[in-house]
Design a protein around this nucleic acid. Structure first.
Length: 113
DNA sequence: GCTTTGACTGGAA
DNA sequence: GTTCCAGCCAAAG
């Protein structure tokens, strides 16, 4: 029973992304309950997002760590991520910085960067 | 309630 | 390496 809307879960998932890490739309969609709803994640973010909401939208990237937005928006997102300590490899984010939901710390140093 | 849109994804060219 | 096509889902008009 989904008491809350999808966008709500998406926002919660995005908010769960730790600083200095980035999650793909597919990961957020999976955390929201539908791994195939990557597109819906973008729709929800665009609707709920927009700025001023305190939502770390810049921590959400496309598949492979690619920047989803184009133009200034994508550039700003990259700058924000770099400000959080995320490294870039050309036009892509390092795969090691990709955050995955449901990560269990099998080792005490697994979650550490 | 149907149609349009959109910050996606994976595979092929 | 990039670009294009088709498929998917949810929210807004």
């Amino acid at each position: 029973m989904e008491a809350v809307s999808f966008s709500r879960r998406v926002l919660a998932a995005v908010h769960r992304i730790p600083k200095g890490r980035v999650a793909t739309y597919g990961a957020v969609a999976a955390a929201a309950g539908n791994p195939l709803a990557a597109r819906a994640v973008a729709t929800a973010l665009r609707s709920a997002g927009g700025g001023g909401n305190g939502l770390p939208w810049h921590r959400v990237v496309a598949s492979g760590g690619r920047i989803a937005l184009r133009g200034e928006a994508g550039l700003e997102q990259r700058i924000r991520l770099e400000g959080e300590g995320v490294r870039f490899r050309g036009s892509r984010v390092e795969t090691a910085y990709l955050f995955r939901f449901g990560m269990r710390r099998v080792s005490p140093d697994s979650t550490s960067v």
